[in-house]
């Protein structure tokens, strides 16, 4: 158990250092943790993302608390929540102490020229992988190795078309998905 706590602390400390940007920046890291340790299933991860989106508080903190809880209970949630804010805490305080007024220097904007497309690509890869895993499932039988899950494909099309034209509203997207899920599965 102690080993799991230490590992959890180490992984979330790393997320705190390397996840740059808002809301979803921690997501690629949590997805990677899933493939590396199997602390939770992909279904649990998507549930956690959904719940974090509609719970008060910064999404990144919500996701950290939730994954910590799923992995190692209440102690796990305390560890992951503290670990994710620890490094930024010291970095932020050091920067305020050093500079009275923050000036974004040339190097920082040069860095972000590479980091922004990188976070876009990280998110895109997860979006595509989840889409693939949800809509296409693999079969043991060699004659039909792939099958399309038409129900999820239909729901995906029904959600993506209207919502990509609207202002982002996570709560509505989640409610619509839940309603669609209940309706499509009871027909």
């Amino acid at each position: 158990m102690i080993k799991l706590y230490l590992l959890l602390f180490y992984e979330f400390l790393k997320i705190g250092i390397f996840a740059l940007g808002g809301g979803y920046a921690a997501l690629p890291f949590l997805y990677y943790l899933q493939t590396k340790y199997d602390w939770y299933t992909i279904e649990e991860l998507t549930n956690m993302i959904a719940v974090s989106n509609i719970t008060p508080g910064p999404i990144g903190i919500n996701m950290a608390t939730y994954t910590g809880y799923t992995t190692a209970g209440i102690i796990g949630s305390i560890i992951s929540t503290i670990a994710i804010v620890l490094a930024p805490f010291f970095i932020t305080i050091t920067i305020i102490k050093l500079f009275n007024k923050f000036k974004s220097c040339e190097y920082v904007s040069a860095l972000f020229l590479g980091l922004r497309p990188a976070s876009c690509a990280l998110l895109a890869s997860i979006g595509l992988k989840l889409l693939y895993e949800t809509i296409i499932y693999t079969n043991e039988e060699w004659s039909m190795p792939f099958q399309i899950d038409y129900k999820s494909l239909l729901l995906f099309v029904l959600l993506i078309i209207p919502f990509s034209f609207m202002k982002k509203n996570p709560l509505m997207v989640i409610i619509a998905g839940a309603a669609g899920g209940i309706l499509l599965n009871s027909i």
């Binding site: 993302i49 976070s119 989640i174």
Partner: peptide
């Protein structure tokens, strides 16, 4: 279970919309 099955698709949609917003 069915609601969460649908929410899984919502999460994919949310990720794709986020990419569109920061693109």
């Amino acid at each position: 279970k069915n609601a969460f099955w649908g929410i899984r698709v919502s999460v994919i949609v949310l990720i794709l919309i986020t990419i569109k917003d920061i693109w």
